[in-house]
């Protein structure tokens, strides 16, 4: 059997397994959507029993069904492309996701892109001057900054730049009172809102620089580099085709995983900045025990990661001939 087909099969299996597990786990969370609805709506109604009927009517679920029937129903609907209806948002899950995902991708892709490019560049320079002042200082800095969780930094940034200095908005994802669309004010407003979240993610991503530094130092000490110098190859050829390419290769899978995990967003980050993306909706869904939305969000995240890994696997052979066509996995 072709290993690509087998890899695809593995991916499908992984998605199914994670979905099943998620489905079971969410149902075991204490509380359920009806309770939440009753707490929210109940006090306003005269008869609590009426609330129960309303809940069933509005949310179109039957909490009395045994788990396996619910599971069967959900999976059948899922295969037909129906993710169900979000109970808390009162609209189809697909629509909620379609609204949330672009915002999350916007913030996360900038954070990942800046983190990796800066990391690779800085790491390469650190390796070139290994042991020098620049290297020592930045290694120390990267180590400390990487060990600070991004949300701690986010809170600090938020306090200083948003609440004290008022340079940035304290939350939200788009400017208020501006017509959404391709106009200057709206676009700058979006960037303005995204800056603090991106920055707090970017600053804490020192890992890429440290990895790049380590990889480069390993390559710089390799025999083939010495032979290349003796062969008289030009410095740019050596720097790009010999050092950089071999140092970046091992980071490729990491990059793909980072891209895959972007869809999940940084849950806590979006909560802090009240940035309505996937993470924010996910927390809302958990709070409201909104089963369909939770399932939808988790499934999207799972599929994104699995697809990213699949792409990493399928393309790794293209960029690293050693892994080409063999029965090897990139991670």
């Amino acid at each position: 059997m072709d290993w690509r087909i087998r890899r695809l099969g593995q991916s499908v299996f992984t998605v199914w397994a994670v979905m099943t597990l998620t489905f079971v786990l969410t149902r075991f969370m204490p509380g359920n959507p009806i309770d939440y609805f009753l707490v929210e709506v109940g006090p306003d109604l005269d008869d609590p029993a009426q609330a129960y009927e309303m809940a069933e009517l509005y949310m179109n679920i039957n909490p009395e069904d045994p788990l396996y029937i619910e599971y069967y129903d959900y999976m059948t609907a899922f295969m037909q492309g129906d993710l169900g209806r979000s109970m808390s948002m009162n609209m189809p899950v697909e629509e909620v996701l379609a609204i949330a995902i672009p915002w999350t991708l916007f913030v996360m892709s900038w954070a990942v892109f800046l983190g990796f490019t800066a990391g690779i560049a800085i790491g390469a320079v650190m390796a070139y001057w290994e042991g020098g002042k620049f290297d020592t200082a930045l290694t120390g800095y990267a180590t400390i900054i990487t060990s600070i969780p991004f949300y701690v930094l986010a809170l600090v940034l938020l306090t200083i730049f948003a609440y004290r200095l008022n340079w940035f908005p304290t939350g939200g994802r788009q400017p208020e009172g501006v017509e959404p669309g391709f106009n200057f004010l709206y676009l700058t407003g979006i960037v303005h809102h995204a800056m603090l979240p991106v920055f707090s993610m970017f600053v804490t991503s020192g890992m890429a620089a440290l990895t790049m530094r380590g990889n480069s130092i390993r390559v710089l000490g390799s025999d083939y580099l010495r032979v290349a110098r003796l062969r008289g190859l030009s410095d740019p050829t050596i720097a790009i085709h010999y050092v950089a390419r071999n140092a970046i290769l091992p980071m490729y899978t990491g990059l793909m995983i980072a891209i895959g995990s972007m869809f999940g967003g940084a849950v806590v980050l979006e909560e802090i900045f009240v940035y309505r993306g996937m993470g924010w909706y996910l927390i809302e869904a958990v709070r409201a025990r909104d089963y369909p939305l939770m399932m939808g969000a988790f499934t999207v995240i799972t599929i994104a990661v699995v697809i990213a890994l699949l792409i990493a696997d399928l393309t790794y052979g293209k960029i690293d001939p050693r892994a080409g066509g063999e029965n090897r996995e990139a991670f």
């Binding site: 390799s222 025999d223 083939y224 010495r226 032979v227 290349a228 003796l230 062969r231 008289g232 085709h241 010999y242 390419r245 071999n246 290769l249 960029i319 690293d320 001939p321 050693r322």
Partner: peptide, 20 residues
């Protein structure tokens, strides 16, 4: 180097750039 005197190392295994 290489035009007048060239050299073969012990580590032929690692004397080539693996991605070229």
């Amino acid at each position: 180097r290489w035009e007048e005197i060239s050299m073969v190392f012990q580590g032929a295994m690692s004397s080539f750039n693996p991605v070229r």
